[in-house]
């Protein structure tokens, strides 16, 4: 998860760098374009035509001379200058507009990248929190500490409410063990996750879960027989937790063999 977030962040930065680079290149190109054509159109103009008018050493064919004069006249005529200025101005305006557009797109892309980066950050924290709390021993300890109260809730009052209250007790135990329920998790999903963490046999859990679902979501009539089944399942779960606690405790107290 951490790696995913890091790579997402790297990707986001790479996108920002790429757009900035592209922006710089476009700016340079635009600047060159602004300098180049404007001098061509507004400068003194090409010299060869002037030479032809002043040189008398090499007599040139009459027709050709006339043509060149025409060309020169066209290049320096007032209409030509106006057109040249207009075209130059238009190019300048277009280039400026292009640069503004690129800058706008770059900023927008950057914002999107920033938004995505933040979105990938959120789950990392949540997962980190989950891994922190809820170690198996703590979960087992929380269940063991609450044994009597949970059983008392199950044997007390109307069977339907008693079964639901008993199942809800797992949630409270998990909070004690530092394993809170996500709001989007259903109670069954959460309790299953927690009991899995405590390494409890799934048969008893499935039996109790089925009774909880029936009590919570169905309109079936629930009686003492249901309560009895729930109590059997709960005692089995609690018994397994205690056994598991003892075996784990013993494993920890005896040093592993084969190691010096």
């Amino acid at each position: 998860m951490d790696q995913g977030a890091a790579s997402a962040r790297a990707q986001a930065w790479r996108a920002v760098a790429a757009t900035l680079g592209a922006c710089l290149v476009v700016t340079l190109v635009g600047w060159a374009a602004l300098i180049g054509p404007s001098q061509v159109f507004t400068g003194p103009g090409p010299t060869p035509s002037q030479e032809t008018t002043t040189t008398s050493e090499a007599p040139i064919d009459e027709v050709e001379e006339k043509d060149r004069d025409d060309v020169a006249a066209r290049e320096y005529g007032p209409t030509t200058t106006v057109v040249a200025n207009l075209v130059g101005g238009a190019i300048q305006v277009l280039t400026l507009a292009g640069m503004l557009l690129v800058a706008y797109l770059a900023v927008r892309r950057g914002l999107t990248a920033w938004r995505l980066r933040r979105r990938y950050d959120a789950p990392v924290d949540a997962d980190f929190e989950t891994l922190e709390g809820g170690a198996p021993e703590r979960v087992r300890q929380a269940i063991a500490d609450d044994t009597d109260e949970q059983l008392r809730l199950l044997l007390d009052g109307e069977p339907r409410n008693a079964i639901v209250a008993c199942w809800h007790r797992f949630e409270l135990q998990a909070v004690d063990a530092g394993l809170p329920r996500h709001p989007w998790e259903t109670s069954s999903e959460f309790a299953l996750r927690m009991l899995e963490r405590a390494e409890v046999d799934s048969t008893a859990v499935a039996s109790l879960l089925e009774l909880y679902r029936e009590a919570r979501f169905s309109e079936h009539a629930l009686d003492e027989a249901h309560r009895e089944r729930a109590a059997t399942a709960l005692r089995a779960i609690q018994g397994q937790v205690q056994v598991r606690q003892r075996t784990v405790g013993r494993e920890e107290s005896t040093p592993p063999r084969g190691r010096r």
């Binding site: 339907r160 409410n161 639901v164 209250a165 199942w167 809800h168 949630e171 996500h182 709001p183 989007w184 998790e185 259903t186 109670s187 999903e189 909880y212 009590a215 919570r216």
Partner: peptide, 13 residues
């Protein structure tokens, strides 16, 4: 959406 909308809890019966 499934990972954000609160699911029905145990004690809302």
């Amino acid at each position: 959406v499934l990972a954000s909308v609160p699911a029905p809890g145990a004690l809302e019966h």
